[in-house]
Simulated scan of single mutants.
Amino acid sequence: MTTPAAPEWIDAGEWSATELHALYTGLAASTPPDAPPRVLWMRSREAHVSVGGSQDPEADLDLDHCAARGIPVVRRPLGGGSVWVDADQDCFFVIRPSRVLKRGPRHLFAQGLAMAVDVLRELGLQGVEPRGQDVWVQGRKIMGTGAATLNEGSVFGASFLGRFPVEDFLACVRAPSEGYREWLRPVLEAGMTDCAGELGRAPDSAALRDSLRRVTERRFEAPPVEVTPDAATVEAWLAAGYEELDDIADGDARPSVPEGIRVNRDNHVFETRVACGRLRLHVEGQHIARVWCEDPAVDRVLGERVAGELPERLHLRSRLAGCLDPAVADAVSARIDALYRGIA
């Protein structure tokens, strides 16, 4: 029986927003096919918004606000949508040669998510469970994760949300109208949680780090070997990472969720335009939790006939039949259906 390779533990300390994403990106891109598992521990020195590798930040964020407040926006190689990374937020990355991942990215997601769940449980959080590519606590999302393949290396990344500043993040989100953020706020508050909210305090960084080291040993069945890369190695990783980030920034981009935002896998808020004016929508799971139209007459009908219903065209059209002009009913039904289908 082959003895598992001992994982390498790299405590890289604190970095600026761009440096943080460049460092793990460059390390992954430079990973040789015979490298052992590596766990990279880092902290963000500054608050910033990180967006997914294929996400268009201009479509999803208020970039003027971010620039005015000095909040960097970094397009990362990992997938997913907009993520607030607070100053002093602890992040970890699992980096492995792609050839050893028998099930590809799913293998790496399974490893990384299991490690994150173990740490949160060890800290004393209750009701911790993975859902898709996220980690939830007591029915609310506490962590999003992402992964990417870069040359011969693959990387999984996540961060421990000590405190989630709802208002700071909300101000960075592009708002198509005055009322949009007012709708989004309660969905964020109900759909997201953080370590401070669950434990009564934000966990100490050293406690998180030490817990992750113990989890690393258990999961890889070998004590981690602490590695301190020299300055030249770090510079090489950064250089490779900057090159990758430049390529990502020049690549194709699209909104993470067309005309809306994903709060968690069960909650999405949209705003669009139809013939009768602005249409705003909160979809929770497979039902319309809330709907609004700026035309008062249409808004009244939608509130009575559509709230709580499935966001599917034929079903909505049947609910609106005889209550709205047929053309308006069809247009609204089709638009809601298209927004819902754009979630996937």
Rank of each mutant, 00 (worst) to 15 (best):
E198S: 02
S256N: 09
E259R: 12
W183F: 15
V225L: 11
D230S: 00
S205K: 06
G197R: 08
A196N: 01
G197E: 13
V225P: 06
R174D: 13
E217S: 10
R262Y: 03
P176E: 15
A207D: 06
D252L: 10
T216D: 06
R181L: 11
P229R: 00
E243Q: 07
D194N: 04
A175Y: 11
E217N: 09
S177D: 15
R254L: 13
A249V: 08
S256V: 08
W183C: 15
G260V: 05
R214P: 07
S211D: 05
D194T: 06
Y180A: 09
V234Y: 05
A231M: 04
A196D: 01
V187W: 06
R209Y: 02
P255F: 07
P223V: 11
A236T: 01
S205Y: 02
A253L: 04
D210R: 00
V187Y: 09
S205G: 04
T233N: 04
D246W: 06
A236P: 04
W237V: 03
V225Q: 12
G200H: 02
R214Y: 05
Y180Q: 13
R219E: 15
R213C: 03
V187L: 13
A232R: 07
A231W: 03
L238M: 10
S177P: 13
A207E: 11
S177T: 14
E221M: 03
P255N: 08
P176W: 14
E189M: 12
P176Q: 14
F220A: 14
R262A: 03
P224V: 09
R174Y: 14
E189S: 08
T228G: 05
I248F: 13
T233M: 06
R213D: 10
E259S: 11
P186S: 11
G251I: 06
F220I: 11
D246Q: 07
D250T: 09
A222S: 04
T228E: 05
P176H: 13
R214C: 09
C172A: 12
D210L: 06
T233G: 00
G260Q: 08
R262H: 01
A240Y: 09
D204Q: 10
P258T: 07
L188R: 13
E244T: 01
L184Y: 08
D247E: 13
A202F: 00
M192G: 07
E259V: 14
M192E: 03
P258E: 07
L245E: 13
P224S: 09
T216R: 10
E198A: 00
F220T: 13
L188F: 15
D230A: 00
E178H: 12
V227D: 02
L238P: 05
R201Y: 07
D194S: 08
A232Q: 03
L212G: 05
A196T: 00
A236W: 04
